[in-house]
Design a protein around this nucleic acid. Structure first.
Lengths: 274, 274
DNA sequence: TTGCTCCTCACGTCACGTGAGGTGGC
DNA sequence: TTGCTCCTCACGTCACGTGAGGTGGC
């Protein structure tokens, strides 16, 4: 018979753990003194304690350990539990590895730039969207070429919507399509989400943008002629994380006060694992 | 101004999370209605929310995120925190990988034997031990060769201790040393821990067993002529986990009642990472 | 008898999820 | 006015660590 402290020392666990395992019925002392409440253990119980520790070290919860130990589990069920655990472990290892890549990337940015990256890229799904839109074309994807095309296009879209008495159900969104045309590299779409089914009106077309299961997104604050670094951050993120672009990049104009320096835009680029 | 639900939807977080971040001062709403208590957010706050999510996704705690965001951290400190995180991540990845190997090993055993492995191997440090001992030699490390040597040796040790009036401070322990001798492959040591400093008495020698930072251990229950599978389990464990033996294997006789079938023995083999 | 170990509460941890019970806003 | 969303508690989660305050055993 061993007093709890001796048994704990031998089993390399804390006294508190043994009390806890007693409390949840996982490992009951061989004897409990009715008077003092002292717990007494036998060394033969070390086998069970070791099994508990071993299973716990595999990452099972104490509930699961109890199941594995006491519930007369069939070899098949046991097999199933272990396979599940294996899958979980592979998953967490993958997640942590991705995190590690991210942390290392940030370390590099700090080493080269001396501060935190200005743009935080996060992944989220994009819902499907029904929009009405106008299109135009631009020579390239740089702000200098895009700006003079987008501004009037959006203004025109606003006027058409007012005329057509269509009400937007969300913020103005532009998306950009690569063109096959030689002299106009990009087709610019200025769109606004709508509800229900509306027909085309002249060159005001209704389009269903597909949902994206994952998109790399970031928020840009300020004038649109300064948006490039934010897009570059997304491009770099996609590169570091071994994703590829999987759709048209979008700019969502979340807040557009008078002063353009106070604009808030969300940049979204659908991605797929590489 | 956005109501909490809309802001949450846009930021891909739960309403509860936003309330929580408000409660701990991590992300305060742009405005709170004094009357209704409604929280109102601005889209420009999305940048901060995204930064919070991004840092959280790297595995930082909310306390750490708050530090990183608000405490004007220098580039150096930032660098330090990220390096620490990187090290932690490498650590958990290593741990989980080891777990995965273990789980896969158990899966294999179950597939071939149809049940859980009978012996759970756990790693623990071994303390340094001062013992008095007698030695003898045996032809091999199999129970058939060891048994006939160990039994009388232990009995003899017991008699010598009684005569010398030495009191043991722990259980009888045998350890096994490979011999250079051709005809006696193993030197068997029968030892008993003692306290303080005692001198040698004839062939009763005092020896200091070194501490082992890590040892693979398991518990054997039953007669010693059935101990082989337990030792094999340890050997296999050492193999699967890419360790190597780093000292003399020991048998600690934890419980030795009359009936040898009720004996409890702990097997210990010092190991080092490979 | 003095320490030493044991005992039983019971709070704290971490980042929210999940009701309960109630009220403001369109 | 009816829903819908919002609000504030407050418990639960997981496996113990860490006191507080008190008592048995050698």
């Amino acid at each position: 018979m061993f007093i709890i402290g001796d048994f704990a020392r031998h089993g390399q666990v804390s006294v508190r753990m043994l009390r806890h395992y007693d409390a949840i019925g996982l490992l009951t002392p061989a004897r409990i003194d009715a008077n003092s409440g002292y717990r007494y253990y036998e060394m033969s119980q070390l086998a069970r304690l070791n099994r508990i520790i071993a299973l716990k070290d595999l990452g099972f919860s104490l509930d699961q350990v109890a199941e594995l130990l006491d519930e007369q589990i069939s070899a098949d069920q046991l097999h199933g539990m272990l396979r599940l655990r294996s899958a979980q472990l592979q998953d967490t290892i993958a997640t942590d590895s991705a995190r590690l890549v991210q942390v290392e990337a940030r370390l590099q940015i700090i080493e080269s730039e001396g501060h935190m990256p200005a743009h935080d890229v996060i992944v989220k799904p994009l819902p499907a969207l029904r929009v009405v839109e106008l299109t135009a074309s631009a020579a390239s994807f740089t702000p200098e070429d895009i700006g003079p095309v987008v501004k009037p296009l959006c203004a025109e879209l606003g006027r058409r919507l007012a005329t057509a008495q269509v009400t937007a159900t969300g913020p103005l969104t532009c998306y950009y399509e690569k063109s096959e045309d030689a002299d106009s590299a990009v087709i610019v779409h200025a769109a606004v989400p709508i509800a229900g089914s509306v027909g085309d009106t002249g060159d005001l077309r209704v389009v269903d943008l597909p949902a994206a299961p994952a998109a790399a997104t970031t928020v840009h604050r300020g004038r649109m002629d300064r948006v490039l670094p934010a897009w570059q951050a997304i491009a770099q993120w996609i590169d570091t994380n071994a994703y590829t672009s999987a759709g048209y990049p979008r700019e969502v104009y979340l807040e557009v006060p008078e002063d353009e320096a106070a604009w808030v835009t969300e940049l979204q680029e659908p991605v797929a694992a590489n």
